[in-house]
């Protein structure tokens, strides 16, 4: 597990040896919290996609990790073959993955599930196997990363340095979460998504095309991981299984925040990011994720509906 755990490549923070000697100084802890928030913001995007699909279709999308991997390869191809910067590729790749997600739900998962939600789960599991193996046959199992000129640019806060790509990821992720929230609360499509989530029959009788809303939701989930992929690639690497480790963390976040809860996913992700970062600081980088899974077990034991979960 630790070898596949999503860890960011060490940024400028680790490269300042003078501060490394005072391990637990407040500055160091604050820097770890800030780094954790930045990691958490990317987790949030992945968790938002997962929780949105769960909230509406009431299934865990097993293809979420494979979708993230595919999006990361899309960023890789855009950068290495087409010389398109990940931040420039963000909009087209996000749109592409929205369309792909919509199409896959509308024309593959939906028809294959014959109206039974639990079949959707199995179809997504099958899809993840297909996508992963397609990636494996195209890109083989090599670890690949992209070179961008700003990868090691940083912002000097006086007491620490923050890697510029990660600050950008934090800003974009929060903006996307905000836009997603606005979409769900202020647009007709957003209202329809929330209506289908709670009352499918009522929604159909109000004239909402449930199959279309399922597909839009699936498309939004894919778009979320596509954005995450664009934000990750400047500081991370991709292998045909890279997405899975992230989705494992995202699943913990979704359980922590409450299955289907959008604010739960956002706050849970930031919290988990900080926990991971602090555990990494106190117990060493390779044990950073131990705190995440301890929390996961604690939540299941103490509050299985999650922090923002609806009452069963």
């Amino acid at each position: 597990m630790p070898s596949t755990a999503p860890r960011m490549r060490p940024g400028p923070k680790a490269a300042s040896p003078s501060k490394k000697t005072v391990m637990f100084a407040p500055d160091i802890i604050l820097a770890a919290v800030l780094n954790g928030l930045m990691t958490g913001s990317v987790y949030a995007l992945i968790a938002l996609g997962l929780t949105l699909v769960y909230g509406v279709l009431h299934i865990i999308n097993f293809a979420h990790g494979a979708t993230l991997t595919a999006a990361m390869f899309a960023v890789y191809v855009a950068q290495t073959m087409l010389a398109i910067d990940p931040y420039v590729a963000l909009v087209p790749i996000t749109l592409l993955f929205f369309v792909l997600g919509y199409g896959v739900q509308r024309f593959v998962i939906g028809p294959a599930s014959h109206g039974e939600d639990r079949n959707i789960l199995l179809v997504t599991l099958g899809l993840s196997i297909v996508i992963e193996n397609a990636m494996l046959s195209i890109f083989r199992s090599d670890t690949r990363s992209i070179d961008v000129p700003y990868a090691f640019e940083s912002i000097d806060l006086g007491f620490t340095f923050l890697a510029l790509p990660r600050v950008a990821a934090f800003g974009v992720a929060l903006l996307v979460a905000l836009l997603l929230g606005l979409l769900l609360t202020t647009t007709d499509t957003g209202r329809a998504i929330r209506a289908v989530a709670k009352e499918k029959t009522g929604a159909a009788l109000a004239g909402i095309d449930v199959a279309h809303i399922y597909a839009v939701t699936f498309g939004l989930g894919a778009a979320c991981v596509a954005i995450a992929a664009c934000l990750l690639m400047p500081t991370f690497y991709v292998t045909p299984r890279a997405g899975n480790a992230f989705v494992l963390v995202a699943f913990t976040i979704v359980v922590l925040g409450g299955m289907g809860s959008i604010p739960g996913a956002l706050l849970g992700a930031l919290f988990i990011g900080v926990v991971e970062s602090l555990c990494g600081l106190f117990f060493g980088e390779s044990l950073g994720q131990i705190g995440i899974f301890l929390i996961f077990i604690l939540v299941l034991l103490v509050k299985p509906t999650g922090l923002f979960g609806a009452r069963a």
Binding site: D188, R191, A192, R194, A195, K198, E199, T201, G202, A203, L205, A206, G207, I208
Partner: peptide
């Protein structure tokens, strides 16, 4: 042709206004 179903099937988590607005979705 609109069917108001038995058991109401309203959207419990949404406001009364949003429920009505969704009625005009089409």
């Amino acid at each position: 042709l609109i069917h108001v179903p038995e058991g109401r099937r309203i959207f419990p988590n949404m406001s009364v206004r949003d429920n009505l607005v969704l009625g005009s979705y089409r």
